[in-house]
Design a protein around this nucleic acid. Structure first.
Ligand SMILES: [Mn+2]
Ligand SMILES: [Mn+2]
Ligand SMILES: [Zn+2]
Ligand SMILES: [Zn+2]
Lengths: 128, 128
DNA sequence: CACGTCTTGACAATGGTTTTCATTTTCTAC
DNA sequence: GTAGAAAATGAAAACCATTGTCAAGACGTG
């Protein structure tokens, strides 16, 4: 590990956190902490489940990852720094980033849950 | 209990379920099952926590109550039968019902999470 | 009243998440 | 680089919302 840097928000870019972020960057939809843990085990880079929980939490605090709440458990997704919100399918978990669109009532949108068009047709998106 | 009726979806309007619905109808924002349980204890109409969980679940199945996911736990709110979705403040829990507005991408909106105008100003709405 | 069905309550079990605490790693200052 | 302070990690236990089990009770119908 040449020279460990810091991410924004002052948190350290430690080995474990980098591994967790790597896993999240490779996903096309949000995954749970347990899934991060399993993927790292599979890659031969095991991590303590406790540490995985703390890592995703730190990454959220640093603004590198967004957290969602699906079916009673938290899921995580690597996201760019640009302001945006998300369309999230309650059925297949698909996420689409959306431009910030101001609302007349002053409500700041963070996430929009619902059913995507594919799932509405019964043609559930792959990878759910 | 004169003659117990049925709600739509065929579920029975039992005493316990009516009590739970009464509590939900008296709220202006979603509450947890535990809060329903506590309120009924306070009213001198105690209910088993297990039964409270089953009651809110039945009421959701009957379409009388909508369920949300806030801070990792489920919250419930009595809702009318008209099709609508919700603006839900992640901070104070305020809910505003919205007309169905079709999206060009075919996404069916169920709930929109974010921050309400009051909370954005730091003037958190009462009753959070 | 009698029977079958649904509901309720007490309790145990489950599962995701957090806490605790000792150990190890990382950063900064010499 | 070495030393010391601060932060991160891992193992285990604790926590807590939610669900399952099963026996007892309430309901609806004839
Ligand atoms: Mn995002
Ligand atoms: Mn509603
Ligand atoms: Zn979908
Ligand atoms: Zn608010």
């Amino acid at each position: 590990m040449p020279d460990a840097q810091r991410w924004q928000a002052g948190i350290r870019a430690t080995r474990k956190r980098v591994l967790v972020l790597d896993v999240l960057l490779a996903q096309d939809r949000p995954i749970t902490t347990k899934q991060v843990y399993d993927e790292l085990s599979r890659r031969g880079q095991p991590i303590a489940l406790t540490t995985a929980y703390r890592a995703v939490s730190s990454l959220v605090a640093a603004g590198l990852v967004h957290v969602f709440s699906q079916a009673g458990e938290a899921t995580y997704r690597a996201c760019g720094p640009t302001r945006h919100h998300h369309l999230i399918c309650r059925d297949c978990g698909l996420v689409v980033e959306q431009e910030e669109e101001g609302r007349p009532d002053g409500f700041t949108v963070e996430a929009v849950y619902g059913i995507c068009a594919s799932c509405a047709r019964g043609q559930q998106q792959a990878g759910s």
